[in-house]
Design a protein around this nucleic acid. Structure first.
Length: 412
RNA sequence: GGGGGUGUGGUGGAGUGGUCAAUCACAACAGACUGUAAAUCUGUCGGCCGUGUGCCUUCGUAGGUUCGAAUCCUACCGCCCCCA
């Protein structure tokens, strides 16, 4: 089983170093060191939920310049517990791939896992509720809103998934995350929805605190464990949570929860001052272009988001002037590359817009997957390149002007 | 020359007397996607405006039957198949 995989982690190889702080914002340039390599921060973290990227080969990932990948404990749950012969054989063949997750990825790079806590939110609602992480400013709480599918106790969360009863809590999450073996793991927290009231959030903060302590106690010491700040939309709860979680001996901190649109920045301004300056900060699940700058401005070092990959699969491609829907008929005869001067594999291979369009709109699974791969290669590279340029501007001390210039050109 | 079949909105293709401006799919157009139950979802898709259980014009063409026709009848036109 997984025990046969030799672990080469050494906690001494993990850490975070701040190289430079921006003078005008809270932004900082840093290096996050893990047993599987270093991450230059600020950095985008790409979401490979099942320990892989749909339609990408392991060798594609380095070509996108991705530094860090986050997978999900909830989704890997079954497979990591299964005795897996092929996985063991793989481990013996390629001894460099020393964890379950790097084996899944087929690649020896720094990884994270989410605790599965987010699924408590996303799986908790009936399809009718349509409540996600974000709520538009004018959304109003719906009378039908209720958490009909979950029951939260002091030990964790009971819920139904695909008709089966499940339970996930801090202890089990730590156990699973240890088996998965990511370099950085997250505490099991209680995320709330934008529709939850003060009282519900207050309790969630308390429970998140309690679970945080359990996670610290039952963690695998070879991994870096990040605690998570909650508090919903409420300033005093956010601060309370940040103080409390920030005081605990975590290796870094995640900021979680859900928001109304355009509120991320405000929330970060409440929370970040209460987190230890010398430790890395991760913003969970946020990553549109504008949000990237907001996060970095407010002292965030890493952040993960499905936007680049999901939108790529849906045909939305990013350029410095905004994004395009490659499926549009207007591109059917467009022989140009997605973006002139782009260094991604797709653009440097001179794959035309019309070609990508034809592939991604093709019913044939294989051709469609090829089209999606070109889109993924482009978007992931785009975001990594953006972060690379941001880092360069931080190093030069011209972050603010880079940001202004970039956003002026970029139409979201 | 004889027999049979067929003709529907950008395309394919339903519908064979009323609830049909016409199922559905594709294309097109517009929008969404933020710790991935998401290789996905939503909307529009004859014209007009006052956006409505609104008006107008449509189912090869021209007539006819009927209270009422894309649907039945007749003729014509086009295409397909079979026999000569």
């Amino acid at each position: 089983m997984i025990n046969t995989i030799k672990k080469t982690h050494h906690s001494s190889t993990a850490g975070f170093t701040i190289i430079k702080k921006d003078k005008q914002t809270r932004a900082r340039l840093g290096i996050l060191t893990t047993p599987h390599g270093i991450i230059k921060t600020p950095s985008y973290v790409f979401v490979g939920t099942y320990g892989k990227f749909l339609h990408l080969k392991p060798s594609d990932i380095p070509k996108t310049k991705s530094q860090l990948v986050i997978a999900n404990t909830f989704h890997l749950w079954d497979t990591v517990l299964q005795s897996n012969k092929s996985m063991r054989q793989l481990a013996e063949k390629n001894k460099k791939l020393d964890t379950f997750l790097t084996q899944k990825l087929g690649l020896n790079i720094p990884t994270m896992t989410d605790s599965g806590g987010f699924q408590v939110l996303s799986l908790a609602f009936g399809d009718k509720n349509k409540v996600g992480k974000f709520m538009t400013g004018d959304s109003k709480p719906d009378a039908s809103y209720k958490r009909s599918k979950i029951r939260i106790t002091q030990k964790g969360v009971h819920f139904n998934f695909k008709g089966e009863k499940s339970f996930l809590g801090p202890k089990l999450s730590m156990k699973l995350q240890s088996k998965i073996g990511a370099d950085i793991i997250f505490a099991f927290d209680q995320i709330t929805s934008p529709l939850d009231d003060y009282e519900y959030n207050r309790k969630a903060v308390e429970l998140t605190d309690k679970w945080a302590k359990i996670c610290l106690k039952t963690r695998d010491p070879k991994q870096m464990l990040f605690g998570i700040v909650q508090g919903g939309l409420f300033k005093d709860l956010r601060i309370k949570s940040a103080k409390s979680i920030g005081f605990m001996p975590f290796d870094g901190f995640g900021i979680g929860g859900s928001y109304t649109k355009k509120q991320i920045s405000k929330m970060l301004k409440w929370v970040v001052p209460y987190l230890p300056e010398e430790k890395p900060r991760h913003l969970l699940g946020v990553g549109k272009v504008a949000d990237v700058f907001e996060a970095i401005d407010n002292g965030i070092d890493t952040f993960d988001c499905v936007i680049p990959t999901r939108e790529a699969r849906h045909g939305r491609l990013y350029t410095k002037t905004g994004h395009m829907d490659i499926r549009r008929g207007a591109f059917s005869n467009d022989k140009k590359v997605i973006e002139k001067g782009c260094g991604c594999l797709t653009c440097s291979s001179k794959i035309s817009r019309s070609k990508i369009r034809a592939l991604i709109k093709n019913e044939d699974r294989e051709l469609n997957a090829k089209g999606q791969r070109w889109c993924l290669m482009h978007n992931m590279w785009f975001f990594n390149n953006l972060l690379n340029e941001i880092r360069a501007s931080l190093a030069r001390g011209s972050y603010q002007s880079y940001k202004t210039k970039f956003l002026k050109k970029f139409n979201s």
